[in-house]
């Protein structure tokens, strides 16, 4: 009985073996597609992360530019010059031009 089943399975296997190329091809294509998919998602995730970092840096850059402008405001510098440093608006009578 067992012997018959083994023989039968062997025959099945021989029959399946005839289509082995098809199965290998099928598995290869599926595997490649799965790998490609994984790679695609990985790259996509990297792009998203890098875009996120880029946005963060752009935002920081903008904030720094804004701060520079705020700190270099003539109004602020004028106040510091007048109040803290006791400077006064220029009087041309005290200016000497040196001609070359």
């Amino acid at each position: 009985m067992i012997k018959d089943t083994v023989i039968e399975l062997k025959r099945d296997f021989i029959y399946i073996k005839r289509y082995i190329k098809f199965w290998v091809f099928f598995l290869c294509v599926s595997g490649t597609m799965a790998l490609y998919n994984q790679y695609y998602f990985k790259v996509n995730k990297e792009i998203t992360d890098l875009t996120h970092v880029k946005n963060q840096l752009t935002a920081k850059n903008m904030m720094l530019k804004k701060d520079i402008s705020k700190l270099s405001s003539p109004d602020r510098i004028g106040k510091i010059a007048k109040r803290k440093l006791g400077m006064q608006p220029v009087d041309y009578s005290k200016v000497r031009f040196i001609d070359k």
């Binding site: 946005n55 752009t58 935002a59 903008m62 904030m63 530019k65 804004k66 520079i68 402008s69 270099s72």
Partner: peptide, 9 residues
């Protein structure tokens, strides 16, 4: 080149 108006995120 001093900023007068900027969009801040």
């Amino acid at each position: 080149n001093r900023i007068l108006g900027i969009s801040v995120p």
